[in-house]
């Protein structure tokens, strides 16, 4: 019976998002509705973790906005996530980069991947 739940969780997922990993810097285009109009807003930052699978998958993106760190969680299957671009590949050794929260400046950098 669990395959029924699996089919609801994994069937007909969007396949248009690029492959990216934890530590990559990505640019997420978010659909925003304002006064009946719709526009795209970009949110560019490092992927510091992913949660869930299939339709329930979310990623946490962290960026510095005028010196203040902002973290945003995106449900990847949400129609409000219009598209994702990979800006930079990062080289990290953790699945969750929560340690970045306690670091600042040069310590909070992610090494860039050599080659992909």
């Amino acid at each position: 019976m669990s395959n029924v739940i699996d089919s609801l969780r994994y069937d007909a997922l969007r396949g248009d998002l690029p492959d990216f990993n934890i530590g990559d810097t990505i640019r997420v285009a978010v659909r925003i509705k304002e006064g009946g109009k719709e526009r795209l807003q970009a949110f560019e930052g490092a992927v510091i973790g992913q949660q869930g699978t299939g339709r329930e998958k979310t990623i946490t993106v962290r960026k510095l906005s005028s010196g203040i760190a902002v973290e945003r969680i995106f449900p990847l299957e949400s129609p409000n996530v219009a598209n994702i671009q990979v800006v930079k590949r990062g080289r990290v050794r953790r699945a969750k980069l929560y340690y970045l929260r306690d670091k600042s400046g040069r310590k909070a950098r992610i090494r860039e991947a050599r080659r992909k």
């Binding site: 019976m1 669990s2 029924v4 739940i5 609801l8 969780r9 659909r31 509705k33 299939g54 339709r55 329930e56 449900p75 299957e77 949400s78 129609p79 409000n80």
Partner: peptide, 19 residues
């Protein structure tokens, strides 16, 4: 009751559902 998952409505809001 088979379990829970999520859906998205027309507005793109996440809706928790029980199957």
């Amino acid at each position: 009751k088979l379990g829970m998952t999520r859906r998205f409505d027309d507005e793109g809001r996440s809706v928790p559902v029980t199957v």
